[in-house]
Write a protein that binds this DNA or RNA. Sequence first.
RNA 1: GCCGGAGUGGCGGAAUCGGUAGACGCUAUGGCCUCAAAAGCCAUUGUCCUUCGGGGCGUGUGGGUUCGAGUCCCACCUCCGGCACCA
Length: 791
Amino acid sequence: MDGYDAHEIEARWQAVWEAEQAFHARDPGPGDERPRFYQLEMLPYPSGHLHMGHVLNYTLGDVVTHFRRRTGHEVLRPMGFDSFGLPAENAAIREGGKPLEIIERNIASISNQMRRMGWAIDWQRVVSAHEPTYYHWTQWLFLRFLERGLIYRKEAPVNWCPNDQTVLANEHVVDGRCWRCGAVVEARNMAQWFFKITAYADQLLDDLATIDWPERTKKIQTNWIGRSEGAEVLFRVDELDLDIPVFTTRPDTLFGATFFVVAPESPLVETLAAGTEQADEVRSYARVAAARPTEEREQREKTGVFTGRHATNPVNGERIPIWVADYVLMEYGTGAIMAVPAHDERDREFAQAYALPIVTVVGDDGALVNSGSFDGRPAAEAKAEIVTWLSEHGRAKPGINYRLRDWSFSRQRYWGAPIPVVYCDACGIVPVPDGDLPVLLPDVDDYRPKGKPPLASNEQFMNVACPSCGGPGRREADTMDTFVDSSWYFLRYCDPRNGEAPFERAKVDAWMPIDQYIGGIDHAKGHLLYSRFFVKAMNDWGMLGFREPFQRLFHQGWVRLGGKKMSKSQSGVSPDELIDQFGADAIRIYILFQGPADQDIDWTPDGIDAMVRFIRRLWRVVHEAAARPPSPEAADTPLARKAHETIARVTDDIDRRFVFNTPIAAVMELVNELSKAPEDEAARFAAETAVSLLQPYAPHVCEELWDALGHSRLWEAPWPVAEESKLVREEIELVLQVNGKVRDRVRVPAGLSKDELIAHARASEKVQAHLNGGEERRVVVVPDKLVNIVV
RNA sequence: GCCGGAGUGGCGGAAUCGGUAGACGCUAUGGCCUCAAAAGCCAUUGUCCUUCGGGGCGUGUGGGUUCGAGUCCCACCUCCGGCACCA
């Protein structure tokens, strides 16, 4: 037997799989009843090379892919590249050169790394966001959303990253900073394109109940959508003949509203201030307060000024002063609030600072006080009663508010899908007709961000005839957020070469929803929310037959380096070098053996050696076993039983428990047993079992060993099934306890009666010593496990 | 502040339904093999006590339930994550 040569073996099998297109998923034909499985991991940004985090992510998906294939499924396991957008463009700037060249070079090198890892990818379905054949359909989808009113353009305060020189979605501002570069985000008023994701807020919330996702991820989305129920109440400003609506979750505290506050950005500020003595003071306060960065606003003491106006509290007719103050947010509710200092911490803080009255309306017992005819009513019940009463006079109605904002997706950057609209002086905003798609991204020399979109200075691109009137028009110079691209890529995989439509519904319905999605939890409130929104909208239009894209979701942990999350921007550990040194199989086993896959890993290369050692041990033991005669079917030795037990454990771990470290330990145990009993008549069966079970983890060496055992094509061999009869133990180790403490262990036949087990326990000298002649008060027997004698 | 998740040997971790705590691997120590090294193999490896038979203690802390708790309940500590002037 030759020694184990990882590189020779891996290259050879990779060539076989490539030549055979072994992992190409066949679309189902009519009446095709084969079980299907759609396995997907989040696609990479081609902004450099793969790092160990990717290796974990895709190896995990690979184990699932092989396991599902071998348990009889037709598995779709595609791959693509999120090649548009900030991450890719910033990489191009960093590496120097044009984005297209850099990105295509990176895609080639990442694809090569993926092949070297031996991942079972369907290479015929690769899609990249920056290819015109892909963004053609991203633009086409834009037009569908636009014509249904789910996309609109509006001037609004948005998040501006001064470093990346572009607007960011709320989802990508983390602690007031840009998710990519970490620069402090500024507020700017700009005309931007928005997806009306808020129209789906309730469905995005409610349908979480229908999908198998980690609770924490559901929680993140629930928090982010932030639904709160309450009421909208009208406060009247008599002097101006004006009704101002406010949202409150505490209508029960209405009698305690002692003042009224408007956000500095609110258009109401001017309406209220005009014609009062305080007008100038109010205007200048509002201007300064509104311009202050959000971060500063959160930390500073609350400030505000009185407007000189009063509003009437609808419950008791009291005239309460209207203030403008920086602690009220324009983005939430109506940008105006009723202030109840007795029962709201922020209002109290403000009332104390400005000497405003505080009236308690809910007593310690939870019943209303100082609340007119509602005195004595429990607050919980008074909520609805007060709203009902006010609504009879048209002064309130039940209301719901969301924290979720519409998704701002236009970017003042070059490297993205052009937004397919034309501005015409005569016709306004005119969509590009479907027939004129794609609007190609032009090749430009200077694509760097400089405050205005780079495309705006490309006259050839910008000047176009208005599709409606034929007059002179200007194209939209902003491009789309890359999260638009990744909101539907998983659908394109089902029909990747379609030139007539983004996809054919029948093909998508056949594969979708994705059975198992794997990716980082950092996309919990961005990508994972946007994609759900896209699918719901498309389902409403009849483009799809399902309402959730990702049936089951799993988050792999971070691979950390020195306590920090690994990313391309750090010079981390190179998978290429590790493959050179140890081989892909050892790396694959190693990264999954570290611990539960959803747990963070502190990267250290210590221990990869041990995996190489394990593979060599397996190699040696299997070759020894291969020289022995085939195991008889009926072989019923301890080794045969161990093999069946291992099949059961590994299968249950991968299938039901979705854990990937313990199967490796189980196979190691089997290999240890085999090496201790090389002469066992089941030796060959044990070797075959170990190789077969390890194949999803180490497909190259297992394929090689499968050959050595006289078989072929393990990647399409059925997954082994444990024989029930071999899982039943003939002999068990009976644990003997006295007063709950283990005192002895004896081997006894399985299936003994309670009395027989108790007899064994009493027969033990060690048990007798601890019984010490005491009186037995109770005997607990767990059949085939233990006997506990209580004295 | 509110809401999640997690704390187990020198290290990564295992213990799936309340029933043998520490599987599997790393590290370390001792030994075998060898002229030597590499590779491989064997043994020990939670902690304290021991007359070497064993015995006490031990899963973040303190209580509780139970014949029996890493696992269930209560309170607390620490770490990680989400939300946060959201009315």
